[in-house]
Simulated assay, not measured.
Amino acid sequence: MELEILSGAARLACYLANPPVADAGPPTLVLCHGYPSTALGAADTNRSYPELADRIANEGWRVLTFAFRGCGRSSGDFSLDGWLQDVLSVADHLHAMGDTRGVWLAGFGTGGALCIAAAARRPEVKGVAALGAPADFKDWANHPRRLVQHARDIGAIHHDDYPPNTDVWARGLHDIKPADDASEVAPRPLLVLHGSDDESVPVFDARVLGDSHGDAELRIITGAAHDLRHDPRAVAILLGWLDRERHRSG
């Protein structure tokens, strides 16, 4: 089912998948995509996530996936703090809906890092899965104007006059620190999943996130690259973790 959720001034295009068997209060998952690749672009970056949402829903979850602002059919322009607000807005919307055992967050790449940051700010979130997630955004923070241009090139920034102030826009790159936030997620469960051959985010970042949490389930997939969304081993590990969380919550 398609729906729209407001996140500040942005309208987020969302897809909601319900479990096939009616269940009073199923667990609910927010499923987040990552930063768009140059090859795919912002318009198509989340196109396969409804399929993954349906697959997870078949395992007994209510799943909501969405396009971050600036991506897919969502309005707005990319900023890291804006994307964090998107995760928080979706999670808050699902909490307000009620009729659930709780809300979990799962994301890939930048989306996974922001799930950790969002859970640190929402103690009611039950758990987080972060796949291929960076421990910080220092590389972006060191070159904010280059990032603005890249976001414009891939279609995540649509307006010529955005951002009105690059220094203000870049604050989120400094202020959002998943490695610090992971400690705030504890003792809630955290799955940190990474590819050993990730070409975008060093595998060391996964260890930093796991160490910060203190009791994370850390899984390194041998030979896997950054795009874990299409690695069947990564999806199987995610499904297994979600199955354990569902039974634990029941």
Rank of each mutant, 00 (worst) to 15 (best):
I5A: 04
A13H: 08
C14N: 01
P26T: 00
P26R: 02
L31Y: 02
P36D: 06
S37M: 05
S37T: 11
T38F: 09
T45M: 12
R47F: 10
Y49C: 00
P50S: 05
N58R: 15
R62D: 09
F66H: 04
A67T: 10
R69K: 11
S75Y: 03
V87K: 01
S89G: 12
D92I: 04
D92W: 03
D92K: 12
D92F: 06
H93E: 13
M97H: 09
G98P: 10
A106R: 05
F108K: 08
G111R: 06
G112D: 06
L114E: 10
C115F: 11
A119L: 11
R121C: 11
V125H: 13
G127H: 10
A129S: 10
P134G: 06
P134C: 05
P134Y: 07
D139I: 14
A141M: 06
H150W: 11
A151H: 02
H159Q: 15
D160L: 09
V168I: 14
H174S: 13
H174G: 03
D175Q: 15
A182N: 06
S183I: 05
H194S: 11
D197E: 14
D198R: 00
A206L: 08
L209Y: 00
H213P: 03
G214F: 11
R229K: 10
P232S: 12
P232D: 13
P232L: 06
A236V: 07
A236Q: 15
I237C: 02
L239W: 02
G240L: 08
H247W: 13
